[in-house]
């Protein structure tokens, strides 16, 4: 069995932060006695990713998923434990040979020079990554066509829309054809059609080149569309590692059906609760068959079967369990 392309073993990372007291007296006090506190951002996380896998990291704000990406890419050093990529590369050493093999897109951090067109940054990246000119031209033409941003190549970055900028950030991360692509919130601020375009493109890339993709997102659509496997991070702990369907089946415990009908139901059948005029909820455990004429049903959804509902339930739990 081939060794994993990413191995994280019992990784821990914590950082020191300072708390400030409110008001003038608090500010005066803090001037002489700053109160330090240590935040454990990642706690005993182990994770192994095989070549060609698409792993989604899910978690609430501040759960530790971006910190985990920073540990894997070498932006941050781990306190204890071990992180290795490509079997023997320690990310924090940032060897050029290692950096040549990874691509990183941090959605809120820009690679693009604000005052210049994206092409200038991309040409700089061509030289940084020693990409032959012909290969660069062909690959760039392909990427811009697939992401529908060819006309914007010569427009100064400051004049691009958020969506166009994010697409160019993605192109920057992909321009040297990395073996592992790290994407932090890749579709933030992007419209639905562009999101679909990015999903299709990344899937195709993963299928055609066996590129390993590590993805974090608040948007469960990103994860459902792309990830073959998900790891759920909560309060710095990994609380789940498996497939999306595995996650749903493990945590979907109270089945509730959401039904939308063409006209209001009259009389209201038993075990059916009316939400609004044509919108109803049924406890699926209480019935063996639907008490509504199927010809009148416009849509049926298993309410707690959605990833969103499960994550809301998971992240609202105060005490995480390993």
């Amino acid at each position: 069995m081939p060794s994993p392309i990413i191995s994280v073993d019992h990784a821990n990372f914590s950082y020191v932060t300072f708390t400030k007291q409110a008001g003038f007296s608090g500010a005066w006090h803090d001037l002489f006695h700053r109160q330090k506190s240590t935040v454990a951002a990642v706690q005993d996380v182990s994770l192994h990713v095989n070549r060609g896998e698409v792993l989604g990291l899910l978690g609430a704000n501040g759960a530790g998923k971006t910190t985990l990406i920073k540990l894997m890419t070498g932006i941050l050093p781990i306190n204890t434990g071990d992180v290795r990529l490509f079997t023997d590369q320690v990310p924090f050493r940032k060897r050029p040979a290692f950096l040549q093999r990874i691509g990183v897109m941090l959605s809120q951090k820009s690679q693009l020079a604000w005052d210049l067109p994206p092409l200038d940054t991309l040409v700089l990246l061509r030289e940084i990554y020693y990409i032959p000119h012909d290969a660069f031209t062909t690959w760039l033409a392909f990427l811009t066509k697939e992401l529908a941003v060819t006309p914007q190549l010569h427009v100064p970055v400051r004049k691009l829309s958020l969506g166009q900028r994010i697409k160019f950030e993605l192109i920057c991360a992909l321009i040297h054809k990395p073996e592992i692509l790290f994407l932090d919130e890749p579709t933030i601020g992007i419209d639905v059609s562009s999101q679909a375009n990015i999903y299709r493109f990344l899937k195709q890339l993963n299928r055609d080149t066996q590129m390993t993709i590590i993805l974090t997102s608040h948007n469960t659509k990103d994860i459902e569309a792309l990830a073959q496997r998900v790891a759920v991070i909560n309060h710095g702990h990994k609380i789940f590692d498996g497939t999306v369907t595995g996650l749903i089946s493990r945590y979907a415990t109270v089945p509730l059906l959401e039904i939308v009908t063409d006209t209001p139901l009259d009389p209201l059948p038993t075990h059916v609760r009316q939400v609004d005029a044509t919108h109803y909820e049924i406890d699926a455990t209480a019935l063996t068959e639907l008490p509504i004429d199927p010809r009148r049903i416009l849509s049926v959804n298993r309410h707690n079967g959605s990833l969103d509902a499960i994550l809301t339930q998971l992240f609202s739990e105060e005490a995480p369990t390993q």
Partner: peptide, 13 residues
């Protein structure tokens, strides 16, 4: 301060 150094650190330069 902005954390944009991360982007620079990820380049083989």
């Amino acid at each position: 301060r902005s954390g944009n150094l991360s982007v620079v650190l990820m380049r083989p330069i």
